[in-house]
Amino acid sequence: MKIVVCAKYVPDAQGDRSFSSDNTTDRQGADGLLSELDEYAVEEALKLVETADGEVVILTMGPDDAADAVRKSLQMGAHSGVHVLDDALHGSDAPATSLVLAKAVEKIGESGAVDLVVTGMASTDGSMSVVPAMLAERLGLPQVTYASELTVDGRTVTIRRDGDASTETIEASLPALVSVTDQINEPRYPSFKGIMAAKKKPVETWSVADLGVDASEVGLEAAWTRVAASTERPPREAGQVVADEGDGGAKLAEFLTGRKFV
């Protein structure tokens, strides 16, 4: 089984995130890391190839530092990596990102058909949760998303999806696109052996031209939406905090009735 995992490099959510002067996410100022939610995708792919033979290819699109996301995934146990790196990509929106990732998946498929594309449920910076559905649309693959449980039996993939109003069982034939939630597994930490082994694993770097994508189709200029303004929210006005001295409940009720919540 050949699995491609889409893994994104994101600014650390614990740090201060902000916008650059062109209203794109500032990816220079902040420390970055492999999106935590994509660790679940890497883990699930690794589990699948442990039981059935196969290989896991990590695919990332992002600036120089995004190589860190590939490296971390290789340390966890993935077999090889592809880093799509091109100045033209700066400011790409979700449709452009999905275009580039789709072309890269196709190119990875040239050296052996891809059975499964696995993604996270959202990137922790943009958090639009739309790239997986867009990838499925572009690749013409069954969309099997928000998996909280996943099994592959022969050529059939089955997931549990906890929808808004119901819990669903979804089934599709391979090849398919799967996105996984943070309920699905416990991502492993890289072992010392894994860290050493990762140094020798192959990572290819591709430009958009390598993918047959025209530079004018990606990046900030090509985006189908435009951010007109971004403003930092004023910090909330400091509220009133009282210590409970037996009257905390009464004071809370007083606040709530005063504000007409009762």
Partner: peptide
Amino acid sequence: IFELVDFGVVGDLFAVLPAAAEAI
């Protein structure tokens, strides 16, 4: 969480919530 609040009570929720519910 107290950085965000309009109103906060430093205390045990098992004491504060029932008392507040009763008052409400």
